[in-house]
Simulated assay, not measured.
Amino acid sequence: MGKYETPARLRAVLADVERFRAAFEAWASLHVWVQKNSNGAGEYEVRDGVPSGALSRARRDVAVAAGRAGLAASIVMDSPFYDSNGWNADQNLIHRWQAVAYNTRIEEILDYTDMLAGQIAALVQNAEHDTPPQLGPTELHALIWGAAKKLWQIGEYRRAVSSAADAVEWYGRQQTSRHDIEGVVVWQEAFSDKAPEPGRPRLRWPGDPKHKSVTSMNRGLLGFGVGVQQTIRNQAAHGQGEQEYTPQEALERLGALSLLARWIDECNLDEASPAVPAPTNGQPVATA
């Protein structure tokens, strides 16, 4: 179905077909079938008393509607409904409405239009089933969208990414209470495989630390955090040759930042055990 395969486009074509039907019915109501012989042959004639202006307007409305709806048949011909034995260019009664209207029963054109509308409606259903859900920036982690929102809404996509990247870096420092470091060091410290030390807690993926998947996740978080900092934050902030991002380019970067923020949320904070004071005078230190 080419460029007409999106649900929105197909619904627009369906609306055009329905507008044609309404305009054609209005035009047809100004006519009456006159039988010419005993064999049933005849033609439509304008009803007595119909003003010429009303007839002209009705005919123009049908012509315009037919021009818009005429594409519907070609869409069906390029769809699973197409049957080479049942469709061809000459059978497009919307395009040929005026040539056939005076010697073809109006009901035939209406039936054709209804059939076409039904087939387009079925194509809409198929396209909706095949189209993946459309996700936007508002579905991102609240921290990320909150930092990017105002800049995104005015089309400053690169700055929106930079703002969101700064926000997730701040979040990493906040979760580990490490306001003495910045940049890649935040993630190197937060996700380090070294044991925590006083003032240097770690973020750990939940689960058995000896389990392969947990070990893999902890190692991956270190690489991912550092990678996001270097490839997204640094490039958005001061990358050489970086131009304004398209919405899609910005959304993909925000998605990575959002994922990092969500993983931070899922991690546990691993802190060093409080130091036990050394005993004095050979006596054990009392503990509460």
Rank of each mutant, 00 (worst) to 15 (best):
K3M: 10
K3Y: 10
K3C: 02
L10F: 05
V13H: 03
D16W: 00
E18K: 14
E25W: 02
A28D: 15
W33A: 02
W33L: 05
A41C: 05
G42W: 08
E43N: 10
E43Q: 09
Y44F: 14
R47W: 03
G53S: 12
L55N: 11
D61L: 03
G70R: 08
A73E: 07
I75D: 03
F81G: 10
N85T: 13
N85M: 12
H95E: 13
W97N: 07
Q98A: 15
D111F: 04
D114A: 11
M115P: 04
A122H: 09
Q125I: 11
L135Q: 10
H141M: 08
L143H: 06
G146R: 12
K149R: 14
K150G: 06
W152L: 05
S162W: 01
T176Q: 11
R178K: 11
H179G: 15
E182D: 13
V184K: 14
V184M: 07
W187A: 00
A190I: 08
F191V: 07
P198F: 00
P201K: 06
R202D: 09
R202E: 05
R204V: 13
H211Q: 14
V214W: 02
T215Y: 06
M217P: 07
L222P: 07
G225W: 00
Q229E: 11
I232K: 03
R233E: 01
G241M: 06
G255I: 02
A261E: 03
I264L: 14
P279E: 01
A286G: 10
T287S: 14
